[in-house]
């Protein structure tokens, strides 16, 4: 059996208990390979998920379910460098427009440290 991360789903349970992602515009900071992104993205209106680790973002993009490809956008980026003007629409189908105060939810996933 390979390494198992949180098979008890404690993290997902807590996350969905604390945040209502339904129809929300979400920025996830520190998304890694999308491990948590998949747990809520299907209910969000739109997700931008960023992480500075290019390999993990590549994995996340590769593993993106077809049903979420028009809803989730992964970027190699940090919160310090993140720019809406630069970052949106890179996949050609973003409906978000560059502006401040855009997101309903910002989710910092093990990234504030």
């Amino acid at each position: 059996m390979p390494i198992q991360l949180d098979p008890e789903d404690s993290e997902t349970t807590a996350l969905l208990d604390y945040a209502d992602f339904t129809d929300k515009y979400v920025l996830e900071i520190g998304c890694g390979d999308g491990r948590l992104t998949w747990r809520y993205a299907d209910r969000a209106a739109r997700v931008i998920a960023i992480d500075p680790d290019a390999d993990r973002i590549a994995t996340a993009i590769k593993d993106t379910p077809a049903t979420l490809k028009d809803r989730v956008e992964f970027q190699v980026n940090s919160i310090e460098e993140f720019s809406l003007a630069k970052g949106l629409g890179t996949n050609g189908n973003s409906q978000l427009q560059p502006s401040q105060g855009l997101f309903d939810v910002v989710f910092m996933s093990w990234s504030l440290c």
Partner: peptide
């Protein structure tokens, strides 16, 4: 870290929410 949180504040809509998960 404070700068990151200040930026998050600017990116959020008024009344938006920040969810933070980090180790103790």
């Amino acid at each position: 870290m404070v700068h990151a949180l200040e930026k998050v504040h600017r990116l959020l809509k008024a009344d938006g929410e920040l969810i933070d998960i980090h180790p103790m």
